[in-house]
Simulated scan of single mutants.
Amino acid sequence: MHNRTMLDWDDLKYFVAVARHGSTLAAGRALQVDQSTVQRRLAALERHIGRPLTLRHPSGYRLTAFGQEMLPAAQEVERAALAFEQALADSKRNAAGVIRMTCPEPLVNRLTRSGLLDRFHARHPAFRVEFVMSDKYLDLRHGDADVALRSGDTVDGALVGRKLGDSLWAVYASRTYVARHGQPARIEELADHPLVGFDDTMANHRAASWLREVAPQAHIVARNDSVLGLLLSVKAGVGIAPLPTALGDAEPDLVRVLGPVPELARIWRLLALPEVRRTPRVSALFDFMVEEIDALRPIITG
């Protein structure tokens, strides 16, 4: 029979979430449950232990001295549970041959149309690539994806990878815009034109940082949360913006008005965690991409 005196380990995640977020409401949002569930599970944990872990204040919840003492051990249980869930998910993906690759959305269309993935699937019918599209860097250590096709500064020493090509950026405008408003002849003239930029969610992107540096007083007429949004805004003639040359040069309605811009150049890499890199499915993808590097470079560089 079930021992009713045993600790329900699942209750610990509610304690950790309240400690992390400072309130039961925020903890509930993070755990995707309602606030009352967090309060009930936290109260059940404290009843089982027989001592309070938290104190309620007008501004939220604070840990008691005992709660502070127990928090590291609870966090260790959380890490172990997440590691188990990740190992279980990895095992299922390995058995199914699924490779989740994260990369920017515009690149998915170019890769798909190139026939590159068709050749990979034909060579390795037991493996299947699934895209996780994002312009932001997803955390491979948290299992957001298995492989990242990523350009930019890679400071995560936990990842291993291979250079596949160069990421070049230039400044573009639509032909309609140029006909009506002209185009900048120098970078210093960018401030004289309406610009399309990123919103706050992409404020750390190198293109956003570069525009702030070279045209701090410029008028930003539209903000987007993706490179695809930039592209569509420029095509619509809203303003001008830096874009990857692989995208901008492929659009007949766009004109490259400046660049490539050396400050925006980066390297395209295929990245994975070492233990994931060694799995048969991911190893097959790495080897294939290296073999097809001549076909891949025009896709990612233009």
Rank of each mutant, 00 (worst) to 15 (best):
residue 76 E to C: 00
residue 34 D to Q: 15
residue 59 S to V: 04
residue 93 R to H: 00
residue 71 L to M: 10
residue 47 R to D: 11
residue 41 R to Q: 05
residue 43 A to N: 11
residue 39 Q to N: 14
residue 71 L to E: 15
residue 63 L to Q: 12
residue 85 E to V: 00
residue 58 P to W: 10
residue 95 A to H: 05
residue 70 M to L: 13
residue 52 P to C: 02
residue 45 L to Q: 08
residue 62 R to S: 10
residue 93 R to N: 00
residue 56 R to D: 06
residue 74 A to K: 01
residue 49 I to C: 03
residue 65 A to T: 11
residue 45 L to V: 04
residue 82 L to H: 10
residue 87 A to Q: 09
residue 68 Q to L: 14
residue 87 A to S: 05
residue 89 A to F: 05
residue 89 A to M: 05
residue 49 I to Q: 07
residue 70 M to R: 11
residue 77 V to Y: 04
residue 52 P to E: 09
residue 34 D to Y: 15
residue 82 L to D: 10
residue 36 S to R: 14
residue 46 E to W: 11
residue 35 Q to F: 05
residue 75 Q to A: 06
residue 65 A to G: 07
residue 92 K to M: 06
residue 38 V to M: 02
residue 69 E to H: 12
residue 54 T to W: 08
residue 33 V to A: 06
residue 94 N to D: 08
residue 57 H to C: 09
residue 57 H to D: 12
residue 41 R to W: 07
residue 74 A to M: 04
residue 93 R to P: 00
residue 40 R to F: 11
residue 51 R to S: 04
residue 84 F to W: 15
residue 60 G to A: 01
residue 68 Q to A: 13
residue 78 E to P: 00
residue 87 A to P: 01
residue 73 A to Y: 14
residue 36 S to Q: 13
residue 35 Q to T: 15
residue 37 T to N: 06
residue 32 Q to I: 02
residue 38 V to T: 02
residue 51 R to Q: 12
residue 78 E to I: 09
residue 33 V to P: 02
residue 39 Q to D: 10
residue 84 F to A: 05
residue 74 A to H: 02
residue 49 I to A: 03
residue 52 P to Q: 04
residue 85 E to R: 04
residue 64 T to M: 07
residue 61 Y to R: 13
residue 58 P to Y: 10
residue 80 A to H: 11
residue 61 Y to W: 15
residue 63 L to H: 07
residue 44 A to M: 03
residue 80 A to W: 12
residue 91 S to M: 03
residue 44 A to N: 08
residue 77 V to W: 08
residue 41 R to I: 00
residue 85 E to C: 00
residue 51 R to D: 06
residue 32 Q to Y: 09
residue 41 R to F: 04
residue 59 S to Y: 12
residue 32 Q to R: 09
residue 34 D to G: 14
residue 80 A to K: 12
residue 67 G to Q: 10
residue 90 D to P: 00
residue 93 R to W: 00
residue 81 A to R: 13
residue 76 E to H: 06
residue 90 D to A: 01
residue 33 V to W: 14
residue 76 E to N: 02
residue 88 L to K: 10
residue 39 Q to G: 09
residue 46 E to T: 05
residue 60 G to R: 03
residue 66 F to L: 14
residue 68 Q to N: 15
residue 33 V to M: 07
residue 47 R to G: 01
residue 40 R to L: 08
residue 38 V to L: 01
residue 90 D to N: 04
residue 90 D to S: 02
residue 81 A to W: 14
residue 41 R to G: 00
residue 50 G to C: 04
residue 58 P to V: 02
residue 88 L to A: 08
residue 34 D to T: 10
residue 65 A to V: 11
residue 81 A to M: 10
residue 35 Q to E: 15
residue 95 A to Y: 03
residue 42 L to K: 07
residue 51 R to H: 12
residue 83 A to R: 13
residue 87 A to L: 03
residue 46 E to S: 07
residue 54 T to S: 13
